[in-house]
Amino acid sequence: MSAGLLRYIAERVVRAALTVVGVVVLVFLLVRLVPGDPVDAILGDQASPEDRAALRKSLKLDAPLPVQLESFVGDVASGTLGHSFRRPDETVASRIEAVFPDTVELALAALLLAWALAVPLGALAAVRKGTGWDRAASTVAIAGLAIPNIWLGPLLILGFAVELRWFPFPGDARAGAAALVLPAVTLGTALAAILTRQTRAAMIEVLDEQYVLAARARGIGRVRLVVGHALRNAMLPVMTVGAAQLGALLSGAVITEKIFERRGLGTLFLDAFFARDIPVVQGCVLVVAVLYVAVNLGVDLAYGVIDPRVRLS
């Protein structure tokens, strides 16, 4: 491993670690600095002064800020993330762990769907640039971007669960893998649209390169040329864009889980919101943000390994 690569990796890791520290502090400050008293939010303004004082104490909101920060950092460092306010015998971490696999399942299904649709569609549009194929792919991509997922979900339910009965209705306990299809389409459509546009643009650029011309001159078959030579090189920028969309994917998961009444991190987060279970809200935000930083770090590192030019910047 070269010194340049090592320095690049060290730099990225340190920057990600600093961001995580910042995230922890920001989440902590959020609860304390945003106008609005969590005690009011939980108990309402009719509560007796004694109840309010007791809650303030149990949330540790009566302690000085540095003490609160220390205790919060302690909860984060120990991995418990503190205790749920509504279910004091459970840690926030255990509640998140219980539902996390469901969200990962949904996100992976959406990712898979988006890539599986976008790459062939984008590549086809680029190879057949200016033809009906290209226009069709571009129209599909624009429509996919324009339709909000809070509307797409109900429309899909109406069409495919109610009218056609191909897929189970949300909340149907008997449904197996088929229940994943409509949520994955709802969550994956916008990403598929973005990736299709990116793949098309990247492919058009790569197909103009000298080495593609050289490969053609050597008599390499059309399919091998597009898949083996052009697509491989076009994927790098598309991957970056795909990774940058991870935050949107997690935001979308919150919405999708609510529409399809699915268990998951989003539902836990929303339920905690309505119960004003501040420690759980805090924990979910923290987990999602750290996850996001970690994935971006992973992409940065992979990028540095794949493409030596990146290390120089």
Partner: peptide, 18 residues
């Protein structure tokens, strides 16, 4: 700020208001 998915941060802020 960008380390937080947009909607998640929005919701977390609204959670603090009654």
């Amino acid at each position: 700020v960008q380390a937080f998915p947009a909607i998640v941060l929005n919701i977390a802020i609204l959670a603090l208001v009654a």
